[in-house]
């Protein structure tokens, strides 16, 4: 039978929603589902993990070096624990994308990146070429399946469970060659892009950091998260963590509204899973209209006040 180990993602006190999404993928894969929590103080996080439905066991390991831990510190321990499992899953967030290939290499296998669908317990679908093709990937019986889970493709597992929690000691050696310095977050109180039900995005069409305020204002009216194209980030209108797309965040809100974004394929990749895509662009030929469910040709600086007046 499959034994699936999920590598939890957390910020030191709270379990990320991405772990609950990995659980859904693990349930679909089939087998017993364990979550590994590595933290400086794992107790609270482990309790949150144990509450997820579908989880059979949570393994927690405490170590002071696990606060702000980096891939090089975590991977050896994960590989040691993971050696007893048929599958090792992590989220396809920047955390998981940094960590899981390192784990895979230590286990001597290639990693399956960005699982969208599970076709069998060792065969999956994943996107390539910025989502322009979907491939079937399968993993031979003798190999550990090490994979990241594409977050926009999976709903979070529900809560209410009470799985057993067991504690262990670290066994692997920890390197001293990598040190955390700091983390600057700028998002503020805005809803998290990857779980927001509504996202309002702005592109180069906004023209400046100052002008971008109208996007924030509309978003706060609608309780929406705020996203941006790469051009808007590169131009310094907004911080990097707002970038949506192939090399930014892949999101799946119920409603996505793009203002002044042309619709480059690298951007579209990030929004394909949205329920409804709305595009506002002054250029009727903009490629974003090819994927939009509702399009409006117009100047965003006049359209936004009109939208605000109409809601």
């Amino acid at each position: 039978m499959n034994k699936i180990l999920i590598i939890s993602e957390h910020n030191g006190s709270e379990l990320s929603n991405s772990t609950a999404k990995c659980v859904s993928c693990a349930i679909e894969t089939g087998g017993s589902v364990h979550i590994l929590v590595l933290a400086a103080d794992a107790a609270d996080i482990a309790a949150q993990a144990a509450a997820l439905n579908g989880v059979d066991e949570v393994i927690s390991i405490n170590h002071p070096n696990y606060s702000h831990a980096m891939a090089a510190t975590l991977a050896p321990e994960i590989a040691a624990v993971g050696a007893d499992y048929s599958h090792v899953y992590g989220p396809s967030s920047t955390y998981g994308r940094d960590l899981m290939p390192r784990v895979a290499a230590l286990l001597g296998v290639n990693q399956v990146a960005d699982i969208m669908t599970v076709k069998g317990s060792r065969s999956f679908q994943r996107p390539v070429y910025a989502g322009n093709a979907i491939i079937d990937v399968s993993v031979a019986e003798e190999m550990t399946v090490v994979a990241t889970i594409r977050l926009a493709s999976w709903a979070a597992a529900s809560g209410g469970n009470n799985a057993t929690i067991s504690s262990r000691e670290t066994t692997a050696e920890m390197p001293t060659h990598s040190r955390f310095i700091d983390l600057k977050t700028e998002g503020g109180d805005l809803p998290d892009l990857q779980s927001a039900k509504r996202v309002i995005s702005g592109g180069r069409g906004l023209g400046s950091e100052e002008n971008f305020k109208i996007i924030y204002a509309l978003a706060s009216k609608l309780g929406a998260g705020v996203g941006a194209s790469r051009a808007a980030v590169d131009a310094g209108y907004v911080p990097n963590d707002m970038q949506v797309g192939q090399t930014g965040k892949i999101i799946s809100p119920d409603l996505y509204m793009a203002f002044g974004i042309s619709g480059a394929i690298q951007h579209i990749t990030g929004i394909k899973d949205a329920g409804t895509i709305v595009a506002i662009n002054k250029d009727a030929e903009a490629p974003i209209f090819e994927v939009a469910d509702i399009g409006l040709v117009g100047d965003l600086f006049t359209v936004i006040p009109e939208i605000e007046a109409a809601i």
């Binding site: 996107p127 079937d136 990937v137 399009g295």
Partner: peptide
């Protein structure tokens, strides 16, 4: 330890959308 890749498919396409002509209509 190679992964077996055996099929490429185009991504699911989205249904054709509509155009509206004003913010109110939107």
């Amino acid at each position: 330890n190679k992964l077996t890749i055996d099929h490429y498919a185009p991504p699911a396409s989205r249904e054709k959308g509509i155009m509206v002509d004003s913010a109110e209509a939107l």
